[in-house]
Simulated scan of single mutants.
Amino acid sequence: MSATLAPARPPLRPYLATTGRILRQLRGDHRTVGMILVVPALLMALLYFIYQDAPRPPHGPSLFDRVGISMLGILPFIVMFLITAIAMQRERTSGTLERLLTTPLSKVDLLAGYGTAFSVAAAGQAIAACLVSFGLLDLQAAGNPGWVVLIAVVDAVCGVALGLLASAFARTEFQAVQFMPVVVAPQIFLCGLLVPRDQLPSWLEPISNVMPLSYAVDALQQVSVNTEATGRMWRDIAIVAAFAVVALCLGAATLRRRTT
């Protein structure tokens, strides 16, 4: 007598279900959606007014153009790191993550679902910030603004991945926030925004070379001065994407149940 086989479950169903659940939660959290979509654009507007009356150099970009294009990569990275780390930690403390880990849902499906959902939000954030900057604030770049959007999205996704990884080492939402000065602040200092990376002290330059934000800012600077996409720009984008993949893999490796 032949055994009745259960119908095979579509391999993408757990992943899609997790992604859909997180997107529905985000849609219902209007404050978080507002922070994701509005805050970077408002900060870019603030930056515009800060530099509005600054003297423009006779040759080269204005201060707003030089700093603003870098901030289009930095701001999405910061905001998505913070929101993702807190949201993931909230899932842990509420017991949702604990319950999910008792189901057949794999760690890869779980992390991929979270990563995809927040990456969709990150893409919306980057597009909104770029539209405001180029459309309303007259940010100038030699290259196509579409490349800026692409780099900002990839960098925001990297922020999502690092936020998921950081949440694995936090016990509370407050601890998740405390990872921001540890993970994000050094990258802002060493990414080339304050001092060009080739002018850093010799012992700091190797540290800058292992930080994803350095390559995102470098790619944006390539767009600001080149009319066409360069090989260096594509290399930098690939490195930032590789950082995101590695962070997600490490996040899956550290994802485990927490028993009390």
Results as ranks from 00 to 15, higher is better:
residue 12 L to T: 12
residue 202 S to R: 15
residue 177 V to T: 12
residue 249 C to L: 04
residue 236 D to K: 04
residue 127 I to A: 12
residue 168 A to C: 05
residue 158 C to H: 01
residue 224 S to D: 04
residue 54 A to Y: 14
residue 161 A to H: 09
residue 132 V to R: 06
residue 86 I to Y: 00
residue 32 T to S: 06
residue 160 V to N: 06
residue 210 V to Y: 13
residue 88 M to H: 08
residue 101 L to G: 13
residue 176 A to K: 05
residue 55 P to V: 12
residue 31 R to Q: 05
residue 25 Q to W: 05
residue 173 E to H: 07
residue 216 A to G: 12
residue 209 N to F: 09
residue 125 Q to D: 07
residue 114 Y to D: 07
residue 143 G to N: 09
residue 173 E to V: 10
residue 131 L to F: 03
residue 44 M to P: 03
residue 113 G to D: 09
residue 99 R to Q: 11
residue 228 E to S: 11
residue 55 P to S: 06
residue 225 V to P: 02
residue 137 L to R: 03
residue 37 L to E: 07
residue 86 I to W: 00
residue 79 V to D: 04
residue 180 M to A: 10
residue 101 L to V: 15
residue 5 L to M: 02
residue 250 L to G: 11
residue 39 V to N: 08
residue 241 A to W: 05
residue 132 V to H: 06
residue 14 P to Y: 07
residue 150 L to Y: 03
residue 3 A to M: 03
residue 127 I to V: 13
residue 17 A to K: 15
residue 83 I to K: 07
residue 122 A to V: 02
residue 125 Q to V: 01
residue 257 R to C: 00
residue 190 L to Q: 00
residue 61 P to I: 14
residue 136 L to A: 08
residue 71 M to H: 02
residue 78 I to V: 08
residue 229 A to G: 09
residue 155 D to M: 09
residue 26 L to H: 04
residue 5 L to Q: 02
residue 51 Y to L: 11
residue 57 P to K: 03
residue 242 A to D: 00
residue 25 Q to F: 06
residue 4 T to F: 01
residue 11 P to C: 12
residue 79 V to Q: 05
residue 235 R to I: 10
residue 222 Q to S: 11
residue 16 L to I: 11
residue 238 A to G: 09
residue 258 R to C: 03
residue 32 T to Y: 00
residue 246 V to P: 04
residue 67 V to W: 13
residue 137 L to K: 03
residue 65 D to E: 12
residue 82 L to E: 07
residue 181 P to G: 08
